[in-house]
Design a protein around this nucleic acid. Structure first.
Lengths: 295, 295
DNA sequence: TGCTTGCTATCGAAATTTTCGATTTTGGAG
DNA sequence: CTCCAAAATCGAAAATTTCGATAGCAAGCA
């Protein structure tokens, strides 16, 4: 029993004529005969009495008219529901590095939630490799990387920008305010870095490796807020994005070091899988991030 | 959007796999791909996200699952409704000669109604030619003729029996009790007959015509109950089926005449059109008439 | 690293189904 | 009696569906 036949059936029943239905539907008359017969054969009952070339609905036929209408109404309803602007709602899973998650939650998240209260956002933190893995397994809807500039045909980059980063130290560091430092000057100072493999940490290591250098941090930790607060307390060093340190630099607790021979290029990229279905909610979140500079 | 596709879609959504659905449904896997694509193309939206060869329902997909279930439920419901023993109900139009209508209404009709209260029966009276006309136009569901024996490939005879008829007279008639009368003896007596063209009246006329005889009735009327009551009151004559006269003959108001040279063969036939859809109600009525000798 | 397995997409060919046009049959109207 | 209208039927054409084979890709495993 296919919908095509049901639609034909409805029209035949309404018009009381195979021929008229054929004209209306743009079929030949024999097609209508065939389709109705098909229905009758499948259902094993007569839908129309044919007496002297005029048709009359049978009891079963009359019943089918009612069902057919209800069935068609449902399909129409669904098709309409596709068109109409959906209330923007749903669940979205966004995965970011630790530092950014912090930033976002403390930043615009409340505003976003107030604007779109029925969108539930799940924040998860992970390192870059895991993030891409999650995209590949459709476990994350969208990710934000802080890493070297990446590109792959399977991913869509919704937004990207270079990330300003600095070596930072306690304001009382002997290097504070000193111009034109070399990486060699500070390489043996006590560093706190994010975990190995984590986004910009990995890029930093690679850049150092090019110069046959290596930093052995005294502590590795993902939570950048802890790093900054430790540095603010003691003579320690790190390499962090400005958005993490900006506040404490401005308040005079930390300072940027002027390292002129290290060029670590880090990008912030908002990425989703190219096969990802853009739900209204997802699109809204992504647009919000792009426009409001949410992250 | 055809039901085939919706059913496939439901299974795919449930199993979360094109391959498994193909096995279950007995299709090849490429067919499933094709059918889902067909749906997606027609609806203009993605139903499944395909990321690394695993599928996940999209929002629209999830919505369609719900609609598809409802649609399938309706079709199933209809199919079941075809199977199940229907409450025997509906409207039936039965057409009979005047005399029989009387007989049936006064006879078993109440019993039938009590047994099958939701079957509404419409009785109409008509002469034989009109009755067949009504069958041909599907205006009557079933007819009962009192006429010469008829047969036609387009009609189904559900029941038939020869009808016993007699010339009848008032018990005080000079012919009462006389054996071996000839039609010539009574041909000029005052007759009351049913209308010309009406079933057995027509057959009678034809039989008389064979003998070059003719009866010119003093009154023509379809209502046989009136004929009998008039004859009971006066010295009048008629030619009627026994079922009409039986009661008054037994109570000694009328008598049969023993006319031995007229052989008028009348049949009672219960007939419907061969293309008539046998609704439960119609079948019940016909069976009832056959079994209970309703008419 | 290479092998195997499991999944979906794709493609051309085969099979099936649908559609059409022409014809037939029947009844009704003029 | 002829013409018209309506549905059934039939073979052929057209369209659609299905299949089988293959490819591409990722995961698991040795």
């Amino acid at each position: 029993m296919e919908l095509r036949n049901l639609i034909t059936f409805i029209h035949v029943a309404e018009l009381g004529s195979f021929t008229k239905a054929a004209e209306l539907l743009g079929y030949s008359q024999s097609t209508i005969s065939f389709q109705i017969k098909q229905l009758e054969d499948e259902l094993g009952c007569l839908l129309f009495e044919r007496i002297n070339h005029t048709i009359t609905l049978t009891e079963k036929g009359r019943e089918l008219v009612s069902y057919a209408h209800r069935i068609c109404a449902l399909t129409d309803e669904f098709k309409e529901s596709l068109e109409e602007e959906k209330a923007c709602s749903g669940h979205i899973h966004i995965v970011t590095p630790d530092s950014l998650c912090d930033e976002m939650i403390r930043g615009n998240y409340i505003d976003f939630h107030n604007k779109y209260p029925s969108v539930s956002v799940k924040f998860t933190t992970a390192d870059t490799a895991v993030m891409f893995d999650m995209l590949d397994h459709n476990e994350a809807d969208v990710i934000i990387t802080l890493d070297s500039h990446s590109y792959h045909k399977d991913y869509v980059i919704a937004k990207e920008e270079p990330l300003s980063m600095h070596f930072v130290a306690n304001v009382k560091s002997k290097f504070a305010g000193v111009k034109q430092l070399s990486i060699h000057d500070i390489i043996n100072e006590p560093f706190i870095l994010t975990e190995y493999g984590q986004g910009y940490r990995r890029v930093l290591d690679k850049e150092l490796a090019k110069k046959s250098l290596e930093i052995t941090p005294i502590l590795e930790i993902g939570r950048t807020d802890m790093i900054t607060s430790l540095i603010a307390q003691d003579n320690l060093y790190s390499f962090l994005p400005d958005f993490v340190t900006k506040e404490m630099v401005e308040s005079g607790k930390l300072c940027y070091l002027d390292i002129c021979d290290m060029d670590v290029e880090i990008w912030k990229q908002l990425i989703y899988h190219k096969n990802k279905w853009m739900s209204k909610a997802l699109k809204t979140l992504i647009d919000y991030i792009i426009e409001k500079n949410f992250s």
